[in-house]
Design a protein around this nucleic acid. Structure first.
Length: 411
DNA sequence: CCTCCACCGGAAAGCCGGGTCA
DNA sequence: TGACCCGGCTTTCCGGTGGAGG
């Protein structure tokens, strides 16, 4: 009797090693970022002799290899330190989630916890106490600590200035060890948000990562394909197509690699032995749809109501949407759902958030005597029923959408 | 050239739900 | 059990502003 898993047999899989398509995979060699890596190595070599390496800040859009290059260099540094018997430790903190003074210090401290140490709670302690515990543990370990702050720009709000102050003063407070910072940022203008005194204390060297060109992306994809895909299942020309598509939109290597992964899955589903252009095209569509659907499902209630208002306005033929017209529809929607609307100030921030998430195109415009505002239009891909997705399991939105539709039609 | 609109957006403060600690 | 702390979200306050129209 046929087994239901027969068709899904991996025997003829196009993949031979899926791990190289994992977003966290670090390749054993690192190409196309030679000058950046050289600069990092020059700075960090000091750590091997027990000196304090210069602080560095790596700038560049996402998927330009900042994190991967840093991990690569950090790993090589630790290997080298082990060989020559010098004490160098790297601590990587992703500030996307670990984004407050308390959490960052907590994160560093916990990597240094030994048996017998008190477990620092996720909240509750005064942050100063977490700082002194962190310093105690760093000193106990000794050597040089490299603190890698990934997505550091997420910290640059008022309340986190204190953290940057703490970290740049570490070498004054530490007695038995040394510390140095590698910041990684998507936002090139983020140092401007840091107060001058802290910026000058940090005196970091800037290292710029620009988006990969189509050529570079193509070579990266070929490198991965050589390791991860069965020989004969792919051609350079299809990798080129995949790279061109990615370079045109973002130049993000991570997304390009993921596109190749999904394309390969598409080829497997179609029981094709080779990856064809059409697989890449349909994967491209699928990846974009999944990104948007994920975003929509994860939106908080008022953001859903705001986006719903934008879509309703659009469907009702409002040609140029401004903050004002969205606000009116949004207030109606809230009333119908029996909810208290947020202030227009909050709505304005929500709309800006849609722009960053590429859910809407937002442009500041001046209408002269008629004031300044934003022009807003949704960027949702065709074929996605955004309102239906947002309505799932949400009575408030259902109520607001249906009511607002009826109301608008009557007008 | 000046006014003035309809917002913008930074800063600060408040609220609230989660937590620790003595 | 009350004082205290953290962090996310929100409101409040308010100075700022591009450019059409007078």
């Amino acid at each position: 009797m046929a087994n239901i898993f027969d068709a899904a047999s991996r025997k003829n899989s196009v993949f031979i090693d899926r791990r190289v398509f994992d977003p966290h995979h670090s390749p054993s060699t690192f190409n196309h970022r030679d000058s950046q890596i050289r600069t990092m190595v020059m700075n960090l070599a000091d750590a091997l002799e027990g000196h304090i390496p210069g602080n560095m800040i790596l700038y560049g859009p996402s998927g330009t290899g900042k994190t991967a290059a840093t991990r690569f260099v950090a790993q090589q540094l630790e290997e080298r330190a082990q060989i020559i018997g010098s004490r160098v430790y790297t601590h990587e903190i992703n500030c996307q989630h670990v984004n407050t003074r308390y959490r960052v210090l907590h994160g560093i401290s916990e990597t240094l916890r030994e048996s017998g140490d008190q477990v620092i709670p996720f909240t509750g302690w005064p942050a100063d106490r977490v700082l002194s515990e962190t310093i105690r543990r760093m000193d106990r370990q000794g050597g040089v600590h490299i603190l890698i702050l990934d997505e550091m720009d997420q910290l640059a709000s008022r309340s986190e200035d204190q953290l940057l102050y703490d970290l740049t003063s570490l070498n004054v407070l530490l007695k038995q060890s040394r510390a140095s910072i590698i910041g990684i940022s998507n936002d090139i203008g983020f140092t401007d948000k840091i107060p001058g005194p802290i910026r000058s204390r940090m005196s970091a060297e800037d290292i710029i990562f620009s988006p990969y060109s189509s050529n570079e992306l193509s070579q990266i994809l070929v490198e991965r394909a050589k390791v991860g895909l069965r020989k004969g299942s792919w051609e350079e020309v299809t990798m080129r197509f995949c790279a061109d598509l990615s370079a045109k939109e973002h130049g993000d290597a991570r997304r390009a690699i993921d596109l190749l992964r999904v394309s390969t899955l598409r080829a497997e589903i179609a029981q094709s032995e080779t990856i064809e252009i059409e697989h890449i095209q349909s994967a491209h569509k699928q990846v974009e749809h999944e990104r948007v659907i994920g975003l929509l499902q994860g939106l908080p209630l008022h953001q859903k109501l705001t986006l719903t208002s934008i879509i309703i306005n659009e469907r009702n033929g409002v040609l140029t949407q401004t903050t004002g017209t969205i606000w009116e529809t949004y207030v109606q929607a809230c009333n119908l759902a029996g909810m208290k609307p947020l202030t227009s100030r909050s709505l304005s921030s929500i709309i800006n958030g849609f722009h960053s998430a590429s859910l809407a195109h937002v442009k500041n415009v001046s209408l002269g005597r008629r004031g300044r505002t934003k022009h807003v239009s949704s960027l949702l891909p065709r074929g996605i029923d955004a309102i239906r997705i947002m309505c799932e399991n949400n009575d408030a939105i259902n109520l607001a959408v249906n009511g607002t539709y009826k109301l608008q039609r009557r007008l």
